[in-house]
């Protein structure tokens, strides 16, 4: 399995995926940092409520971007992880060696994660760091525990999406897998937003309907839940940023710890199903 992990890492490096991602991330962080610099400069002259609201939105936007970039990186790196190798015929040479099929699936899963987890860490901490750096006097009392908890929750996003991506990659073509994953991700996102909108609506029937849509989509694809939970952990009252929770990108309804357990089990089931599918498949 270690050789498959090694090959996955080598692939990302050799195909320049890693460098391109890091380069574009640097561009994004530069733009985001520049925006923060000007925004926080002007916020010093505003009321406390406006400062808290705008700074919350700025940070929320950054965290949302972390989720979005992580999600797409996870989707695109996992959707073809197995299927593209099957389509290219590279498994003929690999599977004739003394390696079990489950090792290939797990090797790909761990290999992709081993690249994305450090990436998420760097990106997430950069966003927080930029906000702390430029938001002196505006963003206050960031708790280290809150940052760690939020980051740890964020790790569930690539774990979940890569496990689903690998499952589809073991089952259908690269193109099919990519399309299904993107649609599923957007369904989860829209479901999450609808649930948040439901929170603001006073008409009971509509509120229930939107909330139920949110719950159902969260059960089918719980990716949005992870972002909401990570946000809610970060935007604590002590940080002075809980105002930001009251938006479509915020987390007015906080996901329960049970839901986090559901995501972990969901990911494990997806990987088990992926292994079973790959074991039975003619390559």
């Amino acid at each position: 399995m270690s050789t498959i992990i090694r090959l996955t890492f080598l692939e990302m490096r050799k195909k320049k995926i890693l460098y391109l991602t890091l380069l574009l991330t640097a561009v994004f962080l530069t733009l985001y940092g520049t925006a923060l610099r000007f925004a926080y400069k002007s916020l010093n002259h505003e009321d406390t409520l406006i400062r808290l609201t705008v700074s919350g939105q700025l940070l929320s936007m950054g965290v949302y971007a972390v989720g979005f970039i992580t999600a797409f990186l996870s989707i695109f790196s996992s959707a073809g992880a197995i299927s593209s190798e099957i389509e290219n015929g590279t498994y003929d040479a690999i599977l004739s060696k003394p390696i079990a099929r489950y090792e290939i699936v797990l090797g790909r899963f761990i290999g992709i994660l081993s690249v994305i987890i450090p990436y998420v860490t760097i990106l997430f901490l950069s966003i927080i760091g930029l906000n702390i750096f430029f938001g002196k006097g505006v963003v206050v009392n960031f708790s280290m525990i809150a940052i760690i908890k939020s980051l740890a929750t964020f790790y569930l996003l690539p774990i979940l999406l890569i496990s689903i991506g690998i499952f589809f990659s073991c089952s259908i073509s690269t193109m099919g897998s990519g399309v299904v994953m993107v649609i599923l991700y957007f369904c989860g996102m829209v479901g999450g937003i609808l649930e948040q909108i439901g929170h603001f609506i006073t008409l009971e029937a509509t509120k229930v309907a939107l909330t139920n849509i949110g719950i159902i989509t969260s059960l089918v694809i719980p990716s949005d839940i992870i972002y909401r939970k990570a946000s809610s952990l970060l935007f604590t009252t002590s940080s002075g940023l809980n105002v930001s929770l009251e938006s479509m990108l915020g987390a007015s309804i906080q996901p329960s710890p049970l839901m986090m357990g559901y995501i972990v089990i969901y990911s494990i089931v997806m990987i088990v199903l992926a292994v079973r599918k790959f074991e039975k498949r003619d390559l």
């Binding site: 090694r6 080598l10 290219n88 015929g89 590279t90 003929d92 040479a93």
Partner: peptide, 24 residues
């Protein structure tokens, strides 16, 4: 085994390919 339609990870060098296959 030498497969008929020879397809390996073409982003590797010949040496790297053999090294990784040795690890396998």
């Amino acid at each position: 085994y030498l497969p008929e339609l020879f397809q390996y990870h073409n982003w590797l060098t010949g040496y790297e390919l053999l090294f990784n296959h040795g690890l396998l």
